[in-house]
Design a protein around this nucleic acid. Structure first.
Lengths: 153, 153
DNA sequence: CGAACACTGTTGAAGGTTCAACTATTCCGG
DNA sequence: CCGGAATAGTTGAACCTTCAACAGTGTTCG
């Protein structure tokens, strides 16, 4: 049993700034996506990943991994997106257990509209508020975190 | 109507690293708090703020602001914490509209236990994974974001 | 004073997420 | 090629958050 290594005061300040700031930031972005385009950030993320995939198609499991969602959550969310006509699903020909989700034309059009406003919000509340060098630091740091989290699963 | 200013490729990489990384990081921490102490991070945050307040008491509105939660959400969450015996509420003597939430001894004890593990996770997945200078950059950046978000409300 | 307004916090319903259980398919060792 | 283990995705219930409406209290100003 080793002693708990508490955070130093500056570490604690930085950590809290991150927790508070990210919650508020993601809240604002979610809010604005939802009111102007009826999409949550989670849904938006799904549309983005599909739009970038070859044929706009992805296996559910891969989509879940890329969007940092559980499979269950993705199932529910896809069901909603499907009922809005933005996404459709078909069984995977090569592996009949699998399912391919793909973006409809309407989904693509919705994404295109939403992305303009979204990117503007991201600038307004994030990119343009942060120093260029600090932005790079954030990129480095969170890539390291992603590696760390993924390696422990 | 001005043209949409898209992100540059590096900006987009950094932004995505942040979104993915923070979601995964907060997920892991939430997970570990929940399985080992039965608390969500939102609940934990509430206990922390109360523990630091004078007399371990805070007005609901202030608590909501400090924990970055909506008042409604806080009401529900406090109700849950209250039924677990960790928090209690009383009407504010100076303003009868108001309510003071306060930490019970049991709440304090629970927080104390949980904080050891939590701080260890924060180190494991965040502080110790990120360069010291990048950590400072994160602190600066997210404080700027907090100011930005709060100024638009 | 008292009427209109603003503010505090709660409530219930609707919507979204998590959790555990389940079906169906594929993989693998014997 | 068979039986068991592993994998893919879905489902429904429990849980949590959001949303809009509300009750109660304070504040302002004619």
């Amino acid at each position: 049993m080793s002693e708990t290594r508490w955070l130093t005061a500056p570490q604690q300040r930085d950590w809290r700034a991150f927790v508070d700031g990210s919650v508020r930031l993601l809240d604002v972005l979610d809010q604005s996506l939802k009111t102007t385009h009826g999409l949550s950030m989670a849904e938006y993320e799904i549309l983005v990943r599909l739009s970038e995939a070859p044929d706009r198609k992805l296996r559910m499991a891969q989509l879940a991994a890329e969007a940092s969602q559980s499979r269950s959550r993705l199932s529910h969310t896809c069901a909603r997106l499907e009922s809005k006509g933005l996404v459709r699903r078909e069984t995977c020909p090569s592996d009949k257990r699998g399912v391919l989700a793909y973006l409809t034309d309407e989904g693509f059009a919705t994404l295109e509209r939403a992305s303009h406003d979204h990117v503007t919000s991201v600038r307004d509340y994030f990119v343009d508020v942060v120093d260029a060098t600090d932005l790079e630091a954030i990129g480095r740091a969170f890539n390291a975190i992603i590696r760390r989290v993924d390696s422990s699963r």
